Computed example of a mutant assay.
Amino acid sequence: MGLCLAAAGALVHLGVSQLTLSWTHSVQKVAWEEDWRAVPQGLLLEQARVMGTGAGMEPPPEAHREGNFWVWKPDLAPLPTVILRRSGATDDWRLCIAGTCRPLSDFVPAAADPVELKPCA
């Protein structure tokens, strides 16, 4: 099972079963990262990291510091999809695969909104 992006009527196979979704918070301007993996039940959020706090992005009590990030394992059941919206008011989402991060626009058109991250065969 792998990961795909669905946008503007197209389906893009990413060729991996896990990735890190990264973005910059629109208000606080700090980095946020989430590690996602395709499992038979959907998409599993394995770990979340945030570089700062504020504006509704406070790390939970179980978070701990690793370098510049607050890190925790969310207690969330697998999701069928993750919807990525693009407002144009912030930098694009970044997909990090095997240590290399690229903007979402490298995979789907920059104007495509919404974009779905989902498991695929």
Rank of each mutant, 00 (worst) to 15 (best):
P119Y: 02
D92F: 04
P103T: 08
G42Q: 03
V39K: 03
I97S: 02
F69T: 02
V30Y: 05
N68S: 15
P78F: 09
C4Q: 01
M1S: 13
G42W: 05
C96S: 12
L11H: 08
G88H: 08
E66H: 13
W72Q: 13
Q41K: 13
S26A: 07
A89S: 11
S105H: 05
G99W: 01
A8C: 14
M51Q: 15
T53V: 15
G42M: 04
E116V: 04
L14W: 01
L95S: 02
A77P: 05
W72S: 04
W32T: 07
Q41F: 09
L14H: 03
A10W: 07
T90K: 10
P74N: 13
G67Q: 09
I83L: 12
A48G: 05
C101V: 13
V71K: 03
V115F: 00
G9C: 11
P114D: 04
A38N: 07
W70R: 06
S17H: 14
V27N: 12
L95R: 01
D106W: 02
L5I: 01
L3W: 01
V50P: 00
G9A: 10
G67T: 09
L5H: 00
L14V: 01
S17F: 04
V39H: 05
V71S: 05
E33F: 07
A48W: 00
M51I: 05
D92P: 06
P109E: 10
L117M: 03
L21N: 06
L95G: 02
M1F: 11
H64R: 15
S87V: 04
M51R: 15
C101S: 15
K118D: 01
A121W: 09
L43K: 04
A31E: 14
E33K: 15
G99V: 02
G2E: 12
T53I: 14
Q47L: 10
P109T: 06
L104V: 02
E34M: 13
P119I: 10
L43M: 08
L117C: 03
E62W: 11
A38W: 06
P61T: 04
I97V: 14
Q41A: 15
E116T: 03
